[in-house]
């Protein structure tokens, strides 16, 4: 993002006065929009990712995010807005994954193989599309790794609308979705529509990633989906607390990444991902240390063994 500033001839310097630094950064409208869009993406991805990690559907989520790349490339080739490509491919991938039989945890391997096959094929298609459409050559990097530059206010509003809609649906189905994620058999016995919820969740994931990918790129959005959620679940075993933590961590690493990237010549995606990774490592390490202190000698046997 600092390309623009470098072109202007000066890399901004960190003054150790946060208020002054923020004021300096936010003097640029493109930085304000980057923070707005980043926050919206982080909140949506944090909440959706928390359920994704809980449901052990990280691979499905990765696929849904990744197919945005061939989607955008295909849309560019066809001469329509890349937004349509993102939405069409992400939601279609979500529907395909949802339609595949998911017969309990034993069938997880099967699902992974099919999902991976579809993902690999579509990625290859994406490269074909970008090769066929020569004008997009410079854009491959931004499709994959995103660009926080030049986000218009209109895009921020659209992002706000999509994030609000996704969070509203998530709030409405939240508890049954949690029940179905943790304990599908009992949830089904209680009348929770487990399969329908799974499809709703994947489509929601597809919509959220399609919108976010246009700014963060198809790879960075996955980092924001999986890492804050995994870190938060390591920190707390209380659902409400760890869900809130996931959103907070996602927002914090996005802000930190944007800020550091503003003052350095390296890409924002690297910083956001690195900070999220650091949060994950710290939380796992912290949990490990805490458990050693709490129960130094006797770890309970893994669940399901002889009780």
């Amino acid at each position: 993002m600092t390309d623009v500033l470098l072109a202007a001839g000066a890399l901004p310097t960190w003054s150790w006065n946060p208020v002054a630094d923020l004021r300096e950064m936010w003097a640029f409208p493109f930085m304000v929009n980057a923070f707005r869009a980043g926050t919206l993406v982080a909140v949506g991805a944090g909440a959706m990712g928390w359920f994704m990690v809980l449901r052990r559907q990280s691979f499905a989520g990765h696929t849904v995010a990744t197919v945005g790349f061939p989607g955008a490339a295909c849309a560019a080739l066809l001469g329509v807005s890349v937004s349509y490509g993102y939405f069409a491919f992400c939601v279609a991938a979500a529907l395909v994954i949802a339609a595949m039989p998911r017969g309990g945890r034993a069938a997880g391997g099967h699902e992974s193989a099919v999902t991976g096959t579809v993902q690999a094929f579509l990625l290859a298609c994406g490269f074909l599309f970008t090769t066929l459409y020569h004008g997009l050559l410079g854009g491959v990097t931004s499709l994959l790794f995103g660009s926080f530059l030049g986000i218009t206010s209109g895009q921020v509003w659209l992002l706000l609308a999509v994030t609000a809609a996704v969070l509203a649906v998530l709030a409405a189905v939240g508890r049954p979705l949690l029940f179905a994620s943790v304990d599908p058999d009992v949830a089904a016995g209680r009348g929770v529509p487990v399969r329908a919820l799974s499809a709703v969740f994947l489509v929601l994931l597809g919509a959220a990633t399609a919108e976010a990918s246009q700014i963060t790129g198809t790879l960075l959005v996955f980092a924001l989906l999986v890492m804050p959620a995994a870190a938060a679940q390591a920190l707390s075993a209380r659902p409400a607390v760890s869900l809130a933590l996931a959103v907070l961590i996602a927002a914090a690493v996005t802000w930190a990444g944007l800020t550091v990237a503003y003052y350095s010549p390296y890409p924002v995606g690297f910083y956001v991902t690195t900070f999220a990774f650091a949060a994950y490592v710290l939380s796992r390490g912290g949990r490990y240390v805490r458990e050693r202190i709490a129960r130094p000698a006797l770890e309970p046997l893994p669940a399901g063994g002889a009780a």
Partner: peptide
Amino acid sequence: FDASLRMRGADIVRLGWDGDRWGL
């Protein structure tokens, strides 16, 4: 339950109480 599932037993019990209710 998966050994890595980070959810307290009390939360699992609570799902039996209101886990099938829609909304927050």
